[in-house]
Design a binder for these strands. Structure first.
Lengths: 353, 353
DNA sequence: GGCTCGCTTGGGAGCGCTCTCAGCGCACCC
DNA sequence: GGGTGCGCTGAGAGCGCTCCCAAGCGAGCC
């Protein structure tokens, strides 16, 4: 096996020399070949192949001030939540999108609060062309610390001063929740409970608001705060059943929670959906575990949220709206096709625009 | 909000000028201050603070040929598997370790086979100081494509020519499996089944081998290949119960599989561990779902596998051995403390050394 | 006192690339 | 035939940093 790691990598200079052109021309070819006559393009291409030339990204960045890299910040202290397939799917979607635009994904996981300064410093350091920040909690100081780099939040950030005007991508949590609850109402359910997510996250708050929009005068005992996990869903469901044994519907803040709830309902001998109808959120079930029984869920096309990028320097994102998955409680996926978008587009520029 | 993104970032030159020293001295201070007298160090530090100077990594890399970045390649085509908390934990452990050494984590997810060339090109491009490659399948062509960058595999790669001599980190899957099965034997179980992982991955093969080491003359019908997922575990368990209703022990290739198996055992009315004792692998349960009932598992300290790095340029890793979690079937974690290591250390250099 | 040596400091080259600008050749037109 | 303009190519100046090397400056020693 040849040890290529010690051999000096060929430079543009070497390519140019081999092709018998100037460095400038070689550079043009490497960057697309615009404005270079065909025979020269051909010669340079061959030289590149023969030498196995790969551009030095550092040198390129030094002059272009572009990095072809985007940071993904996951501001989630808890390992467990990071292990949530929701993140994994999002990451994969982002990765796909970045790859399509020749960009790299730099993953920044924060280890507790003190780490925010480190992340902010890194982002300010101009190492990446932009940042995507996920899983912010309501009182998170991170938005106030980020300067100098276009930032898009995954999920509506809380209304702190720093995040006012921030650009974010989110699905219509409130509307989706409304649809979910209306679906239960449409099934004739009257005692509909809600297991919310952790209320320090806007997605949980918005889904709760959506629930309240429909169930304005609901018994407050029908609402339990949980934490988006199956275990939390179990605990919440037990509490709900103890409090309100007569409940006949449950809207869970996400599918993991719903999975836990289903387990408890089964354990307590309630038939789903005959005795208690359950609706989840996210359409994550196929990726976590076989729901038993299958579950209605609000679909959110997580992996497709990172949308196309018309311009390399100005990535754009779309706001998605979940479509409701559907009438019959025994299907995972809604028949209505992929999530519809609002059609509005947000330029990924910094807050304050 | 001031728009710092348009203001030109200060350079070392500016810092030097403000501190009244040369660029060389300023550079020395920024890089640790070795060999610079205290008053100058102080002045430079202050200038850095006042100007908000952050080194330009591109310029630095251009000359040092270091990037302070490591690529993590997850060669896993299936979204579902990527969502496995096992990866999430590994990523978090790696992130922690890299952060401690001021390195960044560049995440490379492959989208199917064709993507391997892209990944190999990126790695060859000298963008990163090293690569960690995970979740390789037995016939994966990736090891043959990677050149020019120190590579460490997470999990023993298959014995293709390209990966011969490759450096890898893995736990002692075979030994751990042996311990797990011996544990079941020690409980007096005689009809011990094995639900293996996908046998195109060495970890699955090794665990199966470990099972066979102990159960040399086992009924072949007691072995079912599965896929490391809860759903797969359910299917496998059903098949096993149909084939061998008299089984009294199950060694599952990982905890997700075990969780699925437990669900089916409960469904079929078998008591665990009275009727059927179950042992998993990975000690992942706390991160996935409440196992019901709790499960014995072979502990693998996933998050701690990426070990300390004595030298920044030559990261080192330790090989870990799982410790067995334990006699009583009702605890998650073994009381023996963290995984013990072999004490051997592997320099993270390229294959062929 | 002069010389040597070691510790600090500054000057300057150069990492590999992009991009501006000037130059050159070739129609094309008058 | 000469001028004009356009399209292509090359020369060269940096991008911001590190690091080599030489110079400066005391302290210590003969």
């Amino acid at each position: 096996m040849t040890d290529q790691s010690t051999a000096p990598r060929p430079t543009l200079e070497a390519v140019a020399a081999r092709a018998g052109v100037s460095r400038a021309t070689a550079s043009r070819v490497v960057n697309g070949g615009e404005g270079v006559r065909e025979p020269l393009v051909e010669r340079v291409r061959r030289a590149v192949d023969e030498l196995g030339y790969v551009p030095n990204q550092a040198a390129r960045s030094l002059v272009t001030r572009r990095h072809d890299a985007v940071a993904v910040v996951i501001a989630e202290p808890e390992t467990r939540v990071f292990a949530d397939p929701f993140f994994a799917l999002q990451l994969r979607g982002i990765s796909k999108e970045l790859t399509a635009h020749d960009s790299q994904l730099v993953l920044l996981l924060t280890e507790g609060r003190d780490d925010h300064a480190r992340v902010a410093r890194y982002l300010a350091g101009g190492h990446v062309d932009g940042a995507l920040v996920f899983s912010l909690h309501l009182d998170d100081p991170l938005p106030g610390l980020i300067h100098g780099v276009p930032t898009v939040y995954g999920g509506r950030p809380g209304w702190s001063d720093a995040s006012r005007g921030a650009v974010y991508v989110d699905c219509d949590n409130r509307g989706g929740a409304r649809e979910a609850v209306r679906h239960l109402v449409g099934l004739g359910r009257r005692r509909i409970a809600h297991i919310s997510g952790a209320l320090d996250q806007t997605s949980a708050v918005d889904r709760l608001d959506g629930y309240r929009d429909v169930m304005a005068d609901a018994d407050p005992r029908l609402i339990v705060e949980s934490d988006f996990t199956p275990g939390g869903g179990e605990r919440a469901m037990r509490e709900l059943l103890d409090r309100c044994p007569d409940l006949d519907g449950v809207f869970a803040a996400n599918d993991l929670t719903a999975a836990g709830a289903l387990r408890v309902l089964r354990e307590r001998g309630r038939r789903v959906p005959e005795d208690v109808a359950v609706v989840g959120f996210d359409d994550m079930l196929p990726f976590t575990e076989q729901a038993d029984p299958p579950l209605t869920t609000v679909r959110q096309d997580i992996e497709e949220i990172p949308a196309t990028t018309p311009s390399r320097r100005q990535p754009r994102f779309r706001r998605h709206r979940p479509s409701l998955g559907l009438a019959c409680s025994r299907r995972h996926r809604p028949p209505r096709g992929p999530a519809r978008s609002y059609g509005r587009r947000f330029p990924a520029t910094q807050a304050g625009a």
